[in-house]
Design a protein around this nucleic acid. Structure first.
Length: 282
DNA sequence: ATTAGGG
DNA sequence: CCCTAAT
């Protein structure tokens, strides 16, 4: 639905032009690495810059019907870094300082997860990345080498694959589809759902019911809980929105709470009775 | 390791 | 964007 291809923002184009003015055309790597523009271009590779510049240059003709008129492109700029004016130091975009949160998330799904990568098989490499990360479920994430090794064992890849892989990873991180901690990449949220927001799945946090005696009630509850859990698990494995199962799980959870409270009361009454006290149950 | 050009 | 040849 969105843009499988990374749409270039006006800020990025501006940074690119400023970079060319500063370093000259052809110094794509310098422009990309320049701390002055890296904030805006860190998700682009030097090759991306080159391609973008070519695309901007070729569109001298009437811009696309539905294309906003961009600033004119200063075409032929031979090797003359010379003087360059930086319009203004690029503002820090919202997602430019990736928090290094090491969120202990759940290791979701198994190999079957690749069936719901993106609906429309995104750039074949993205699929490979997801496949790799979801198979080697490393809580800390996997570094580039590990990912490359995994993919090489399952697919034929070009020689410069590592480089491409790196680009892909960087982009996915920029898209917040992956999380990068230190030098490792890990799957982020359920990238599976499109328009619908993430369905918060109930984690296994059912109140542990400690039932000293009279366990028949507990068994019943546990059975229900297990049944619900199974339903959830099954639904998840099938990649379905387990709305019903979730509701039932919540219901059971509430049930367990009430039961526990009830048992506490019963226990108290039992204690009193055992001391010869007369207890009126209203 | 980077860049230029074609697909 | 991806791939390949040439620096």
């Amino acid at each position: 639905m969105g843009n499988p291809k990374q749409k270039w923002t006006a800020e990025e184009e501006e940074a690119l032009r400023a970079g060319i003015a500063k370093h000259g055309t052809g110094k794509w790597k310098n422009i990309q690495k320049d701390p002055e523009f890296n904030h805006l271009l860190y998700s682009r590779s030097n090759i991306d810059l080159k391609d973008k510049w070519r695309n901007m240059s070729v569109s001298a003709n009437g811009q696309g019907p539905r294309e906003k008129s961009r600033t004119p492109k200063p075409k032929s700029v031979t090797d003359s870094p010379a003087a360059a004016q930086f319009p203004a130091t690029p503002q820090l975009p919202p997602g430019s300082s990736p928090p290094v949160v090491v969120d202990s998330d759940v290791q979701h799904m198994d190999d079957a997860s690749k069936c719901l990568l993106d609906g429309k098989t995104a750039s074949k490499y993205n699929a490979m990345i997801y496949e790799a990360l979801s198979t080697l479920k490393d809580p800390n994430g996997s570094n580039t080498s590990e990912i490359v090794c995994f993919i090489e064992k399952r697919h034929e890849v070009p020689q410069n694959f590592r480089r491409l892989l790196t680009s892909r990873l960087r982009r996915l991180v920029a898209q917040e589809k992956l999380e990068k901690v230190q030098n490792c990449y890990r799957l982020r949220r359920e990238v599976l759902n499109g328009t619908k927001g993430p369905i918060t799945k109930p984690k296994e946090v059912w109140p542990r019911l400690s039932i000293p005696f009279n366990s028949h009630l507990g068994e019943t509850l546990e059975e229900a809980a297990v049944a619900a859990a199974y339903k959830v698990a099954e639904a998840e494995n099938k990649s379905f929105v387990a709305a019903e199962a979730v509701k039932e799980a919540e219901r059971v959870s509430k049930m367990a709470e009430e039961a526990e409270a009830f048992l506490q009361l019963a226990k108290e009454i039992y204690e009193r009775c055992s001391h010869g006290e007369v207890v009126m149950v209203t």
